[in-house]
């Protein structure tokens, strides 16, 4: 029973990271019509930026995270203005290749600058927080409160604020949004800011939860992010939020001993792959998407 509860907790934490990254990727795809294969590298960039602030510069982890969020948002905007906007309108395939190339470049820059050795933040990873009968790691102790605050806040932002409504409108029907008087360009910039910031937070959370990380951090979860986006319905931001949590919990619960001994932990990604394949075959619009073509 303890194992079950602990697996739910770790699943929710992984799921929260996927949800944060997934919302950003989903919005970007819905609004900019770009499948951002570099999204994983935004997480890596954030993790290393936070490391830089935390270890050599000696800031505490909260300040380092704030810096990482700001830095990643700036990175996203920078890439938008310097690379993606000038290349706009070349079609889905071309833009996919551009972001894939960008991903390789970003990852190699991190390799060159930071080296391949694994890194850790300046926190004690062997510490345990007891929550009733649950043992929570420092990563989880940080990630859970953040997730419970940030995820609903993002949902509220999308639902109630003018910026959120503009984003949803542009994702829903870009031309009509423009006709309605919405500055679609500016919304596009806001989307990158938001996606970058969320990826920034997600990246640091992921690095803390993993304990040690290397430049492959974001790449390892890239296809999980895409599974989240597809599962939630491409372009559907709320969908990505929920789908991320569902996927995270499903992967971890699959290893529970109660399920015929449980799936071997190394096969968790295989489970996610299977989910993606089945989804694309049976219900490509995802759990919450509409069954129309782009």
């Amino acid at each position: 029973m303890t194992q079950f509860a602990e697996l739910v907790v770790t699943g929710l934490v992984t799921g929260a990271v996927l949800a944060l990254a997934g919302v950003g990727a989903s919005l970007v795809f819905g609004i900019q019509r770009i499948p951002n294969f570099a999204h994983g590298e935004y997480l890596t960039f954030a993790a290393y930026l936070a490391f830089l602030l935390n270890v050599p510069f000696g800031q505490n982890l909260v300040a380092a995270t704030a810096g990482a969020i700001a830095g990643t948002a700036l990175l996203a905007i920078g890439i938008h203005f310097v690379v993606l906007r000038p290349l706009r309108g070349r079609g889905l395939v071309a833009m996919s290749l551009v972001t894939a190339g960008l991903a390789l470049m970003l990852r190699d820059v991190v390799f060159l600058v930071a080296g391949t050795q694994v890194r850790q933040y300046a926190i004690d990873q062997t510490k345990v927080f007891a929550l009733g009968f649950l043992r929570i790691s420092p990563g989880e102790a940080v990630a859970i409160p953040i997730a419970t605050v940030v995820l609903p806040a993002v949902a509220l932002l999308l639902a109630r604020t003018p910026m959120g409504k503009s984003m949803r409108a542009v994702a829903d029907n870009r031309d009509l949004a423009a006709i309605s008087g919405i500055d679609v360009e500016r919304v596009g910039v806001h989307v990158w800011l938001l996606a970058g910031a969320l990826a920034g937070l997600g990246g640091v959370m992921l690095a803390v939860v993993e304990g040690t990380f290397d430049p492959n951090l974001g790449f390892q979860v890239l296809f999980l992010i895409f599974t989240t986006v597809v599962l939630g319905g491409i372009g559907n931001a709320y969908g990505a939020l929920v789908a991320g949590l569902v996927l995270g919990v499903a992967m971890d619960l699959a290893t529970w001993n109660g399920f015929f001994g449980g799936l071997d932990a190394q096969y968790k990604p295989v489970l996610a792959f299977c989910v993606l394949i089945v989804l694309l075959l049976v219900r490509p619009q995802g759990l919450f998407g509409r069954a129309t073509v782009l």
Partner: peptide, 15 residues
Amino acid sequence: CQTFDKLAFPLARSG
């Protein structure tokens, strides 16, 4: 050593 840490941390947390 470096990759061992990744296993050692959760081991230590298990008590």
